[in-house]
Design a protein around this nucleic acid. Structure first.
Length: 153
DNA sequence: GCCAACGTTGGC
DNA sequence: GCCAACGTTGGC
């Protein structure tokens, strides 16, 4: 079972929004990057997800969620009204995928990007630090444990 | 298949 | 709001 990190902009849809959704679950649509897409397709129900807030005053890992279902085609790619519309996508050959993400908990203390950078050796290899623009990425068990330890109250 | 132009992400 | 990094597109 893999642990993942998924980014979101709190001004648009933050962890508080996730926590107050019906079923505390949201289809994580709109990912339009091939590397991120490939990671989504590797996700399995029950996998743990770290929720990261980006493009905000304090970029940080703010909580824990899990993967609530199998990866499936992102329906917004077929919707001409959606900003995620991709005219190249056909229902029989979908290009973009999503998973449903279910809220589990806030971290008692957010783990800021600055805090991660301050322990650069400990977080060596963490794609959040080396692939700044990747919005979905795997997190090793060791890094995950360390992040949760930092996030304890 | 190379590479320049362009667009987007996201920290600061 | 600026700008660096870098993924994507499209001409050749």
């Amino acid at each position: 079972m893999t642990c993942w990190l998924m980014k979101t902009e709190p001004d648009t849809f933050g962890i508080d929004d996730l926590a107050t959704r019906p079923g505390q679950t949201e289809p994580w649509d709109g990912v339009r990057n091939y590397q991120a897409r490939n990671f989504i397709r590797e996700m399995r129900p029950g996998d743990e997800v770290l929720i990261y807030h980006s493009s905000c005053a304090q970029p940080a890992i703010v909580g824990i969620a899990d993967v609530a279902g199998e990866p499936r085609p992102d329906p917004t790619q077929f919707d001409p009204e959606s900003p995620g519309h991709d005219p190249r996508s056909k229902p029989e050959t979908p290009r973009w995928y999503l998973v449903d993400v279910r809220y589990r908990a806030h971290l008692p203390r957010p783990v800021s990007l600055a805090a991660l950078k301050a322990q650069a050796e400990a977080f060596e290899g963490l794609l959040l630090l080396s692939r700044g623009r990747l919005s979905v990425l795997p997190v090793s068990a060791a890094h995950r444990d360390r992040i949760l330890a930092l996030g304890k109250g």
